[in-house]
Amino acid sequence: MSLLTRAQRTDYGSHFRAVKEATTEPAVVKWFLIGVAVLFMTVFLLLPLICVFYEAFASGWELFKKAVTDRHTLSALKMTFLATGITVPMNVIFGLAAAWCIGKFQFIGKSFLLSLIDIPFAISPVIAGLLFVFIFGTQSAFGQWLQEHNIRVLFAWPGVTIATIFVTFPFVVRELIPVMQSQGTEEEQAARVLGARGWHIFLRITLPNVKWALLYGIILCNARAMGEFGAVVVVAGNSAKTNTLPLHINALYQGYADACAPFAVATILAVMAIVTLIVKSFIEWKISAKENRL
């Protein structure tokens, strides 16, 4: 000790450095791990994304345009928008209703209800499609009744839509429940005591409080609804008329179209995926900024 100079003894800089060294890895290890992580992500995530755009334009702009504006592509785009356009609002209404009764009230059987809501997450998409084949197919009484009355559900847009609703079922509600729960009921109770009506409370207090969580749920639900493949392939059958974009990509890939055609159509969905990630990061940033303010 006596060998140390006074300055050395109060060298807090080296003290902190020693603590830092003891609780972090050597620089070599650190940069090696970063390298492994970046390489893994590049090979498994970035490369497929780049590949879609590269292959889409590999045969030139003209063929790309031809594939994207083809009438089968446009009809698939319409089917995707139709199914998504029904799915997202339906799941939003359900999500808000379910999150209201689960998040704002105390009742027996709540956790049971929550696990029922999670069921579609645990069911493989192909099985989800299979469920609707059993319900609406001619082997069931209901399916026969539909056939007698000439109502087509299977191999038509209603089947595609209901299968999409099933696989995206928990997305919105799962984002809303924790937020509604954590916000409690005090603001709503105050509004109630001051004489506000139910809808008024919901629109002026609850909805603004959960808007980011709601938007988060909507973009996740939208991305999955636009991209669903397994469930839709079972209920849509092999008809160009019921093809959604993912099914159309499959048809182009298995068929005799230009090599770039499936990739050209895939760019539409890839752009959707990138926009989803950007919006998602933006919302996460908004939410964390809000939490830091509190």
Binding site: L45, L49, V52, L220, A223, M226, P246, A266, L277
Partner: peptide
């Protein structure tokens, strides 16, 4: 989150 956001048909052909 790309595998969540990207449709499986798109990543599949890629």
């Amino acid at each position: 989150d790309l595998p969540f956001a990207m449709p499986t048909a798109v990543s599949g052909i890629a």
